[in-house]
Nucleic acid binder design. Sequence first.
DNA 1: GATGAATGAGGTTTCATTCAT
DNA 2: AATGAATGAAACCTCATTCAT
Lengths: 213, 213, 213, 213
Amino acid sequence: MGAVKGKRMPRAVRERQMMDAAVQTFAQLGYRAASMDEIAELAGVSKPLVYLYLNSKEDLFTACIRREAAALVDAVRAAVTPGESADRQLWSGLRGFFTHTAEHPDGWAVLHAQARTQGDPFAREVAVMREEIVAFVTLLIAEAAREAHRNPSLPEREVAGLAEALVGAAEALAAWANTTEGVSAKEAAATLMNFAWAGLGNLMRGEPWAPPR
Amino acid sequence: MGAVKGKRMPRAVRERQMMDAAVQTFAQLGYRAASMDEIAELAGVSKPLVYLYLNSKEDLFTACIRREAAALVDAVRAAVTPGESADRQLWSGLRGFFTHTAEHPDGWAVLHAQARTQGDPFAREVAVMREEIVAFVTLLIAEAAREAHRNPSLPEREVAGLAEALVGAAEALAAWANTTEGVSAKEAAATLMNFAWAGLGNLMRGEPWAPPR
Amino acid sequence: MGAVKGKRMPRAVRERQMMDAAVQTFAQLGYRAASMDEIAELAGVSKPLVYLYLNSKEDLFTACIRREAAALVDAVRAAVTPGESADRQLWSGLRGFFTHTAEHPDGWAVLHAQARTQGDPFAREVAVMREEIVAFVTLLIAEAAREAHRNPSLPEREVAGLAEALVGAAEALAAWANTTEGVSAKEAAATLMNFAWAGLGNLMRGEPWAPPR
Amino acid sequence: MGAVKGKRMPRAVRERQMMDAAVQTFAQLGYRAASMDEIAELAGVSKPLVYLYLNSKEDLFTACIRREAAALVDAVRAAVTPGESADRQLWSGLRGFFTHTAEHPDGWAVLHAQARTQGDPFAREVAVMREEIVAFVTLLIAEAAREAHRNPSLPEREVAGLAEALVGAAEALAAWANTTEGVSAKEAAATLMNFAWAGLGNLMRGEPWAPPR
DNA sequence: GATGAATGAGGTTTCATTCAT
DNA sequence: AATGAATGAAACCTCATTCAT
């Protein structure tokens, strides 16, 4: 992965190599099962250097979580054009999400599978990011209701539940797309938009949601 | 927790105490962080006895996974009446699912949060159960399409994706319902049925799915 | 030292073997330089057993300090007959002290040379014992003043300083007696009694303190 | 502490900064617990420079011991006027000793508390200095005996023991004076002279040693 | 004259597992 | 049926020390 085992690299470069190795190892083995020895070897450095730069296993894991969370949020944010209609924004966001998780499966595994199950303080760290995303989706749903002149508007808790369901579905589809041969980010996004916007009922009646262009 | 530290209990009872303790410990700490010492103490027995009955930590965890998976599948199965319409079956199944996960949070945590993230052979073990459920949902969706005389029927991979999305949404709502004050299993099921059957689009237009009776 | 490397000993016996080994190792190498590996090997057990019984290096060292401090204080206390004249009590106490430190040089080294120089919390632990002894000596000096009808009595801080000097002299003589061929506990005690009671001045004038009997 | 982190200082200055930092660190943490990292940082230089100048941790510690020992011996020597009476010489020497240890507590801690407890070769290094001082005191005691025309003179081993006791008492009083609010070097020296020259017996009878002038 | 980059070796601690009774 | 006694292996972390510039 570009981590040539050359010697005497500037600190910033080495640090990135270590975090890359850490993300990969944590993703595959989990926080507890991953050993600092393995990470150091994969990074092509000695263990003390990892400690010198990243301080401790806990700090290293936290740094991985933060880096990957920021990257994911950035990817989704960059995909969305503010001001568009709610369904277009959701569609773009989902495409950004599925594309990023497909391109960074280890980063996604660290966030979704590992950090969330290791208890505090790691779980809290991802929870913050997830709540940010759920809040964004909640806004989109409320906006969609406004656009449709729905009256009376949905109860707040109902909207919260729908947002949770939508995000959960996205998370599951990300894993599915990553492990199923030949499913693209675009397809995953389309499937989820259909599910969310049209619902199974409309799909049955042959009225799917139409992806813009 | 009912595990009175008496002596000379029949093997079946002792075994259940141990597995109860193990499920609780694995759920709270994860597979690696849970120690056999803790489990034995919580079960009120000595460590060698745990090994005598359950053989190894790996076997113990596997036994927990299987027991909890069977219990969950049984709960869902028992809730569903075969032969009813697809949406009624899904509705009953979801209520069974949410009720069971709410009543057995540790068992659900072992399956969903822990086993899936510990790599093989544990992940495989839950994957089997999950695939069973996804397959059931897939059947229901196909059945719904038939009921609606939809033609041409949805492509197989599309249906698979929809089933994945539905199951993922259910998993997320289970966690949400378990951590959000005052959300009942019934409400969670209703929210998900609305989402799945009517879709956000219909919801916006004021056409929700109607829960039977 | 009776620590036969037999297997399966009762816990109390093993624990004493470990602490004997620890005292010896700490005495010879100091707290930091002594390794748990060395202690375990000297005790004839594996390292985990040391941790199982004694908990941590810090706890082990503290346990050693407490055991040796209690033994020393007991030895001095047992040597003194309360109610006797001050100089007789001091004489008996010193004999008890020099005898004990000569018979347990490692224990004495742990208390005097090692624990005191390792900072808190170890230094505090011995400081308590030392203050007890200094307080005892302070009482004896005050009592001697009363016996001699000295008027006005010595200022409090002066007495404290004298007690410190006396205890410090005893500590130095213990080390000297332990490393100088052929100096007995009795001789050391006599030398110190002469020094303390008669002073160099009187000694010069040929008027030593007379050891009772 | 005057160790401004400037660049390009003459070697002698840099070396003194390093040894100052080392003495302080060794005094507070002990030889083993003090790390070269800490010392280098406190000295305001990089670690390799410490190695370039002082060679190794062992050499650095030895250098500290020698410097502080020489300083202490010089201070005592400078305080004494050769040719005066024995008690005057002792009195002056003690004042020099207490004054120096009060003004250089870290240096004294390195010599007394740390070096002596780290085993060879460090203990040997201080032992040399201590023997020098004990020999000086031994001479003074013998001289005092001559001055008093004492006959027969005290046995050699008795004198050695008295010298040890006197030095030990001085060491203890140095620690006591350093940690007790408001005890001056002069007071400590007076207390010790009283103890040594008059003895407790004479003190009780109201016949203290009289400090000259 | 001075330092950022790097590591071999060794320390404390924990844990799954077994033996002997 | 049940347990107190015991350990091999491996984890996290630190430190004295060197190299290349």
